[in-house]
Write a protein that binds this DNA or RNA. Structure first.
Length: 261
DNA sequence: CCGGATGTTCACCT
DNA sequence: GAGGTGAACATCCG
């Protein structure tokens, strides 16, 4: 999906524009998008007439609380975007087409004043559920503390990057943030997650938080320093050697063999 | 035409 | 049980 950075922008958009507005209708044109056996009738019955009272985020999951009703859980997959009253939470997504087809509107809430909150998702990799299991997610990567990061990495020989991507251990880090943070921290993605020294875990935390802050400020997960070099022949922006391409945690991984140790 | 892309889930192995 | 792999979802891009 959009990673933590984009979902935070969606959360802020929803908090700014959607709260306090009663839901007049639920638009669920795509049954596939409703997860866990939900259908349009159930979602409509649960949400219509209710006020939206809070917009929260855990990792890449956006949570919208209703007054006296269930919490709406929105997942954006890789290409999902949130649009409220025609305004987008982020200007751009790396792999999303720049067009906005009405056919890609997978789910929406219509408000009494005619405004709308809409999920646009060309690839349909996202989805909607009610009262999603928030406990299944690890602590949010934004603002994670030293002890929590240590716990998230400890006790396994799984590759460090794979562990960072494991949403049940640490929530919010996606493929681009993982590569960027490891590149900044000078840590090889294939290292055993539990094998880092205490100093390395502290260094990783520092750079993970800085990465999230920088990408948030610049407007997206695709604004990292490493991103322009993530292609065959791409060179490390820091020391100029050709990056190594690997497959770690099921995802394409680009890293520098010189300074990531 | 082919392969790969900010993600998650599931089946199937080892 | 842990962990790895590949497929699936649908569309665009190089």
């Amino acid at each position: 999906m959009p990673e933590l950075v984009e979902v935070e922008a969606y959360r802020a958009l929803a908090a700014r524009l959607a709260l306090g507005r009663p839901v007049a209708a639920v638009e669920a044109p795509d049954a596939w998008y409703l997860k866990r056996g939900l259908d349009a009738e159930v979602v409509g019955g649960a949400l219509v007439g209710r006020d939206l009272v809070a917009a929260r985020r855990v990792g890449k999951l956006l949570l919208v609380d209703t007054a006296g009703g269930p919490t709406l859980g929105l997942r954006f997959g890789m290409t999902g975007r949130l649009v409220v009253d025609g305004r987008a939470g982020v200007d751009d997504l790396l792999y999303a087409p720049h067009r906005a087809e009405a056919a890609w509107e997978r789910f929406g809430l219509r408000f009494a004043d005619g405004g709308r909150l809409v999920m646009v998702d060309p690839r349909r990799l996202g989805g909607v559920e009610l009262d999603p299991d928030e406990v299944a997610l690890g602590p949010d990567a934004a603002g994670i503390g030293p002890a929590a990061l240590r716990r998230a990495l400890a006790g396994t020989t799984v590759a460090l990057k794979a562990r960072l991507l494991d949403q049940s251990r640490l929530a919010g880090v996606g493929n681009l943030i993982a590569d960027e943070a490891l590149w900044r921290a000078g840590l090889a993605p294939g290292r055993a997650a539990g094998g880092l020294s205490a100093a390395e875990v502290r260094r990783l935390r520092t750079h993970l938080l800085a990465t999230v802050a920088d990408l948030t400020e610049r407007g997206g997960s695709h604004t990292g320093e490493l991103l322009p070099a993530r292609h065959p022949g791409g060179r490390c922006p820091r020391d100029g050697v050709e990056l190594v391409r690997d497959r770690i945690g099921g995802r394409t991984t680009w890293w520098c063999p010189v300074h990531q140790l």
